[in-house]
Design a protein around this nucleic acid. Structure first.
Lengths: 230, 230
DNA sequence: GGTGCCGCCATTGTCGACAATCCGCATTGA
DNA sequence: TCAATGCGGATTGTCGACAATGGCGGCACC
């Protein structure tokens, strides 16, 4: 499962810059390096045992993914997502993953669809077995969405969602240790999406996916409002 | 107009890498550097009068925007878009710009909407005045879409479309010197989209924008089929 | 006591040189 | 004649040093 979920910090990466990038990204997304903290080139170069060259390249790549923010001649710091940023991302996800679901309904193989059902079953089982299922829910949720995105067979779409956007979503979840607080509902929505895909109803798959993500967004907005009542 | 359309090669950019990046991107998008041709670091460094450091950084940024393709220890070459790539991009545009139109209908100021009508009028006038309107049509088309995207007021959405995707679309248009071959229809579709935005009908604005881009895609697919009949 | 200026220090930006890797070509052997 | 292999040139990857810029603290002046 993990293998399918992200490009791992592969030590067999071809260049130092690749390795440093993978490691740095992981450290940032998982919160090992605190959001908002400074990222000194000299410092990190020493810590990772490379010169500043490859490290700069890694930082630039992270910058283009919006995982760090750079200010010329001043420095780089780990991005800290605001609620506004997260809401914006969810609007983009709604559009892109809706399209992904539509394409997946048209293009996924029967085998892949069967795999989705298996995943749903695992998810339900996990929910029965454990009390604190927050972590597993997160992972299952990600895996579910990843699979449908891949099912679109649209490389550009896949790159934009998995290659760019999802790192931010993951970082956010680590930052706020978000617990999925509507697990049964989400699971039910997942099932309906898979059913639409199975029956090759592209229109319906898109609609359901957009609703699914739209509700997640509304959920976040409500939480924000409760914490920060005007 | 041009000012609003892209981040120009601003000589007041803070660093050498910034300047080189802007220049290189422009040269690549406009086809000054032929698609598929090799991009030697040493060569370009000499040509632009900088060392390889800043130039490498510029190339890396272009890589993350898919304007060049890099192969480790081998070199970088200017990306040459295949039809498949372009079709994929249009599916993504359909989703993202549909969402942009929806948000624009909700969030654009009345002033901005008035600006859209002015643009439409200019477009129509231009079409009457000139025979060969291909170039102007292209520019107007881009400007129209740019404005609606900006009207979404969603920075993430704007970045993904204007900051990443549109450079590829522009490069493609230069590559194949695409002539918009359905100008009247496109113009009419534009007008209906603006009307939907003006009446704050978000649902309709999204639908019309998706259709508009969907038809452009079908148009490309037909052309490809005619040139390459199986 | 507060405010503005000046100089030092830390950090990033830039550079040129060296090392590692890959591609093409020629040579050699079957 | 063809295929495999080893060499040479060219290109990219990495490094350490130097230059340029921005922030911060101290000092003087109001």
């Amino acid at each position: 499962m993990r293998q399918s979920m992200q490009q791992l910090a592969d030590d067999s990466a071809r260049t130092l810059a690749d390795r440093v990038f993978a490691r740095l990204q992981d450290d940032i997304v998982r919160g090992v390096i605190a959001p908002g903290s400074k990222v000194s080139e000299t410092d990190l170069a020493g810590r990772y045992g490379v010169s500043r060259g490859p490290l700069r390249e890694a930082i630039r790549r992270l910058e283009s993914r919006k995982l760090v923010e750079r200010e010329v001649h001043v420095g780089t710091r780990v991005a800290s997502l605001s609620f506004t940023d997260l809401i914006e991302i969810y609007y983009v996800r709604e559009a892109l993953e809706g399209q992904a679901a539509r394409l997946a309904a048209e293009r996924m193989s029967d085998q892949q669809v069967a795999g989705l059902y298996q995943l749903l079953a695992q998810h339900e089982q996990q929910q029965d077995l454990r009390e604190d299922t927050a972590y597993f829910q997160r992972e299952f949720d990600l895996d579910f969405h990843y699979r449908i995105i891949q099912g679109s067979h649209n490389q550009t779409l896949i790159r934009m969602l998995i290659g760019e956007l999802y790192h931010l979503v993951r970082m956010y979840r680590y930052q706020f240790s978000t617990t999925a607080n509507r697990p049964q509902k989400a699971l039910h929505e997942h099932r309906r999406i898979v059913e639409a895909i199975e029956s090759r109803d592209a229109e319906m798959a898109e609609l359901l996916m957009r609703r699914h993500i739209g509700r997640a967004r509304e959920n976040i907005e409500q939480q924000a409002q409760q914490r920060n009542p005007q």
